[in-house]
Design a protein around this nucleic acid. Sequence first.
DNA 1: CTGAAAGCGCTTACAG
DNA 2: CTGAAAGCGCTTACAG
Lengths: 336, 336
Amino acid sequence: MSNLTIMDIAREAGVSKATVSRVINNSGAVSPRTKERVLEIIKENKFSPSATARNLSKGTSSAIGFVVPEIDNPFFGEILRGVTEITDKNNLTLICCNTDDEREKDRRALDLFKENRVRGILYTPAVDYTDKKDRKNLIRIFDEINVPVVVMDRNINLPNVDGVYFNDYQGIYEATKALIGAGHTKIGIINADLEKPLARDRQKGFTDAMEQAGIPIREGYILAGDFHATKSYHLSRELLAMEDRPTAVITCNNRTTLGFLKALSERGESVPDDIVCFGLDRIETLELLGNNYNFIERDAMKMGREAIKLLINRMAFPGRPKMEVVLDTKLIINKL
Amino acid sequence: MSNLTIMDIAREAGVSKATVSRVINNSGAVSPRTKERVLEIIKENKFSPSATARNLSKGTSSAIGFVVPEIDNPFFGEILRGVTEITDKNNLTLICCNTDDEREKDRRALDLFKENRVRGILYTPAVDYTDKKDRKNLIRIFDEINVPVVVMDRNINLPNVDGVYFNDYQGIYEATKALIGAGHTKIGIINADLEKPLARDRQKGFTDAMEQAGIPIREGYILAGDFHATKSYHLSRELLAMEDRPTAVITCNNRTTLGFLKALSERGESVPDDIVCFGLDRIETLELLGNNYNFIERDAMKMGREAIKLLINRMAFPGRPKMEVVLDTKLIINKL
DNA sequence: CTGAAAGCGCTTACAG
DNA sequence: CTGAAAGCGCTTACAG
């Protein structure tokens, strides 16, 4: 049996489609008696109006595009959870895409959103779009889609686009200061490619803290990987094997931390006795197990909530100036 | 500037809407010259046809509903990843919902899917629907929506509905046998409420293996929690504090394992020296760190892939008999 | 090979 | 308060 339509309901209620529509939307004037009768029949038949037809007719849509690079990374899982918490309440539909950090998939996701005429996009870029051409291209695509966009987590400095970011600079800066305060001077850092904005930002937090304390930075202690565990693991092995190695290491995201801890445990060493670790992001498993690493906490669920709120706000006020929400991080210190 | 329509393209190309439509869909006959011209103009204008209008017109949809209870649990994150891998290739749109294990949200997700006239649903139930009334209700809802459904992971035995499940029974059964084979006789198990089908299934794997080996099962070693870490933690504390405690413990999902390991590490004890642990599901973090627990591996990404394949197949062959895919698990043994 | 027209299931001025 | 009609942006028989 195919789906009922508004026409079926109208017929059965002995009214016109228009009236049924008014009842459904609670719009216009409908006499109480008519309304009741129509509602009754709708209920009886478990009728629910087609979102597709409604969207076409109204020229709007209830869909929000959501795209993240690694949907199986709990960090993004939590963001998504924060988002759904609010979309659910607002009757918004989430179209989810996963890009595996590939530009091509990023592109396809945006095409999909365009075809579906989404009302807004929650976007964590797959790559950093530092390449001039890629960047121009991306900006053009957003121009074409022409709906509100909120960038999450990875700030690629798009003109006139809202965003929600963590204050990673501050997090790393404070973590570094905390280590220095605890007497560490030989501090290493495992970061990603320092050409990339995200990595640069974090690196600056480190450098600033070190310079302010008048502590020289040793080139050999600065490792530039790619934010993934494997790379971090290999870099960490080298670092840990150095003759004169750091007494503390800062890792710049949760994957990096894991790579480091793996290299460490392979040597039969552990934190914080053999070396101190200060990581970015909570790692739930380790925390549960009482692992003594220190971390900079970032509330991903909150990021999700803020992002969708920003988007909804922008949908309501398309003309308002660009807004960026920067979420503070928090140091969780176990032992330095 | 609002979106272009097929009419704009038609006008500019000097043809009718029908022709443009044929070009877009590669359907019907269009002269090569016309086709080329139309394509040219489409490209120039970055035109992409409205999925909404197309869906309404064709009476179909490109959307698949995806609903899981805990989107920030990496297990479901991986399932989702497996799903997107295939939907991306088939130009299917994923509408994601998160239910937090709440029946009410489960219900709302299905309503949403109905309104959006999705073509199919990938469904992990929020609750087990053992309650007769709830169950009837659910079946009725699916009847109303009347599109293919594939249940994932949690088998609630819906009549005539496809599903993809792991062979948890076999996993636990083999794990238990492995423990017995290594000489353990005092084996505990941390499971969920044994009234629930999921838990019962796992429990049976345990019981069967023990009985076949002629080993008596001690009531006190059987803990029934709820598949969450906190509950497991509390139960584990009691278990570990017993005078005559087990030498090995089986934990029935990743959360349960964490709760157990937490209770253990709090006592200053660790696996496998103080007690052996055999868990269901890999825990990436622990593995990376070389933690010596044993686990039953379940390939969640594969579950995602199989589920969407089953759904696509069912969409193509609506009349075919019910199919269930049961994925084998695999023992990963470190030290028993 | 191409176009005019009807239709998908709604919404919304407009008229009464 | 209610309905007839036009329109949203497509697709698809049908006729030529």
